[in-house]
């Protein structure tokens, strides 16, 4: 009796072919992307999304074409960070053009598709079982966003990943082996511990991790004009990864972000220089890697 592999084709259900077609259309859509840089952490609340936007601004200042995909479907904030939450996506003949911030950074976020304060919901025929299929569906939505947008020619596509150390591997698989990773932590044992888990999970993938960024590394005291520690005891947890740079907590940045602004609009700000140095370091390291569009498949 014949076995599964003795039979050519799938008898017409066409499911494998459709999944392959999805992959092919993503590859087509991303064919102009030189570096795909996933910004992850594992831990929520470390300022990763804000830092992603600032890093995009700094890369843009260096003369690069940059876009951001907000992969956090359940807590999208890039639309708001780029003051694009009221922007309407308008399709054209070949797909959907990517909306741009006034600094020229392309942003695609669920925040443009699901109006605030609505939560992202999926229809289902299997009630009460969303834990079994929701992750699959979320990745389908991300694949659709990746495939249907006209990303065009980009030096950097930054992907702002949602929290979850274990899931970082699934994102690595989705984005392909040539996607580069940057991890964001804050100087606490808990945050570094979770980032260490993400690092361990990524070690099982072929993806290259450029390094980590230590965010909220101290705060600026306007009284004495110095950066003081935000966490009283330095973290003991060592990360087996290069540090790309540290960024102090910046109240000015928080206020700017609420107005949809960027540090690039406020070059005198004391956290702008660290972000710029990190962007330069990212460029230096990314240039040693093969271009994403060539190596992806």
């Amino acid at each position: 009796m014949k076995g599964y592999y003795d039979i050519v084709g799938d008898g017409g259900s066409d499911i494998l072919e459709q999944v392959e077609a999805q992959q092919a259309s993503i590859a087509r859509s991303l064919s102009g992307v030189r570096n795909l840089l996933a910004v992850g952490s594992g831990k929520g609340g470390v300022g990763k999304s804000t830092l992603t936007m600032q890093l995009a601004c700094a890369l843009r200042e260096l003369g690069h074409a940059v876009s951001i995909l907000d992969a956090d479907l359940n807590g999208p904030c890039q639309a708001r960070l780029g003051t694009l939450q009221d922007r309407v996506l308008v399709p054209d003949d070949s797909g959907v053009p990517v909306p741009k911030t006034r600094n020229g950074i392309g942003v695609v976020s669920m925040g443009m598709v699901v109006p605030e304060p609505r939560a992202v919901e999926f229809e289902s025929v299997a009630s009460g079982s969303s834990h079994t299929w929701r992750a699959t569906k979320e990745f389908t939505v991300l694949r659709e966003l990746l495939a249907c947008m006209n990303w065009g020619k980009l030096d950097y596509l930054l992907v702002d990943l949602p929290p979850g150390a274990e899931r970082i591997v699934q994102y690595a698989e989705l984005l392909g082996p040539a996607a580069l990773f940057v991890l964001v932590t804050i100087p606490s044992d808990m945050s570094r511990g979770i980032v260490a888990r993400s690092l361990d999970a990524l070690a099982k993938t072929p993806n290259r991790i450029l390094g980590y960024i230590e965010n909220m590394d101290g705060y600026y005291c306007s009284d004495c004009g110095r950066v003081k520690p935000l966490f009283p005891v330095p973290s003991d947890v060592k990360l087996d990864l290069d540090c790309l740079g540290t960024v102090p907590f910046d109240p000015e940045l928080a206020a700017l972000c609420d107005r949809g602004g960027s540090l690039a609009d406020s070059p005198g700000s004391f956290s702008w220089q660290p972000v710029q140095r990190i962007a330069e370091e990212v460029c230096r390291r990314a240039s040693e890697c093969a271009p994403y569009s060539k190596e992806r498949r």
Binding site: G12, S13, D14, I15, E17, Q18, V19, Q22, S124, V125, A126, S129, T132, W133, R134, T136, K137, T140, R143, E144
Partner: peptide, 14 residues
């Protein structure tokens, strides 16, 4: 049904 639906594919294809 839901698992197949979550893959974003259609049984029987186009």
């Amino acid at each position: 049904t839901q698992v197949v639906a979550s893959l974003g594919v259609r049984v029987g294809g186009e």
